[in-house]
Amino acid sequence: MSDNDNIIVDTTTRLLQDLCTPSIVNDAEEGKWPTVLWNALEEAGLPLTWVSDELGGAGAEISDGFAVLKVAGSFAVPVPLAETLMAGMLLAKAGMNVPQGPMSIAPVQPGATIGLQGGVLKGTTRFVPFARSVKHLVVLADGNVCLVAAGDCSMSHGISLAGEPRDDVSFDGVKPLDVAPAGEVSADFVQQLGATVRSVQMAGALQRILDQSVEYAMERVQFGRPIGKFQAVQHNLAELAGEVAAAGAAADAAAEVVADPSIDADRRAAEVATAKVRVGEAAGKGAAIAHQAHGAMGFTYEHSLHHSTRRLWSWRDEFGNEAVWAGRLGRLVAARGADNLWPFITGE
C-alpha cells in the first residue's frame, strides 16, 4: 500500500457509505442506473485511477486502484467501476487516450477471441460485464487494443447470479473508434488482470459478510441468548474469519505483481493463480457460513446479505474459476518437478 492508499480508502468508503446504499444496489438490479453514484465516483477520479494524467486519468498507483476495488467489493457497488478501471489500464498500456464515462472489456471468457480485419471487427463474445450500461468497450482483437462505441454493437442481454448485466456482444462489422498495437497487453494478461480484480473484489465482499455475520450473531437472540454465544456458531464464524484472512492475503499478493512487467512472468502467473484459487475457495466456504449464521433472514431478498454473497458466487466463476487456475498453477508445479517444488513456492 502506498501512503495515498489510506486517503483513497477513506474517501471511497465515505462516498460509498452515502451513495451506495442497499436500496441503490436493489434499484440497479431492476435496471435503474445509479447516476448520482457514478457521477460521484467519476468526480473523485476513481474509475480512471490506473490511467496517467497525460492520457486523461488520475495517474495514481496500481495499489491505489486495488485498494479502491477492495472497498467497492465490500459495498457491492452495482456499476462497472472495476471494468472501467481495467479498460483504462488496457488503453493506457497501449498508449491510447482514455474517454470519460463507464467502460467494459471484451472478451472476458478464457480462450475467447475477436478478429480485426481491414479495420473492422469480427466475432461474438459472451458474458461481457455491464455491456449494455457502458459508453465504450475496450476490445482485444488480433493483437490490437480497440476502443469501440458500445452503441455500435448488437447485444443479447444476460444477467449474472448477482443480477448484474453480463451480455453477449456481437462485434461483426463494427469499426473501432481507435486502434493501437496491444504491445504487452495479451489475452493472458487480460485474464490475469481480471482474475486479480475479481479476487480483490471478493476479498472486500468477504470482509463485509464477516462483519455482517458477527453483528447479526450478537443481535439475534434464541434460547435466551445471542446465537453468537453458542460455541457451534462461534466456531463457524472463526472459520469464516480464517477464510477472510486467507482471501485478503492471497488477493494482495496478486495485486502487488499482476501489472508489473518487471516481475518474472511465471511468478506473476503463480501469484494470480494462487489468488483466484484461494479466494474462490474462500468465497464458496465463506458465503455458506454467512448464510448459515443469518438463518432464514439472510435468505430473504429484503436482507442485504445477498448483495455480497451473490456477487461472490458470480465473481468466483469469472476470468477462470478455481479449477481453471488450479490446473494452470499445477502445470507450473509439475513442469518444475519435485525438487523444485519448494523453490517454486518461495519464489527463490
Binding site: 484472512a245 486467507a246 492475503a249 492471497a250 499478493a253 503463480a270 501469484e271 493463480a273 494462487t274 489468488a275 484459487v277 484461494r278 475457495e281 478455481e322 479449477a323 487456475w325 488450479a326 490446473g327 494452470r328 498453477l329 499445477g330 502445470r331 508445479v333 509439475a334 517454486f344 513456492i345 518461495t346
Partner: peptide
Amino acid sequence: ADARSDEAFGRLAARLKTLRRM
C-alpha cells in the same frame, strides 16, 4: 501428471503459498 493431478497440486500450492504469506 495429468489434468486431474495438475488441479490437485495447483490447489495445494495455492493454499500453501497463501499460508506462507500469512
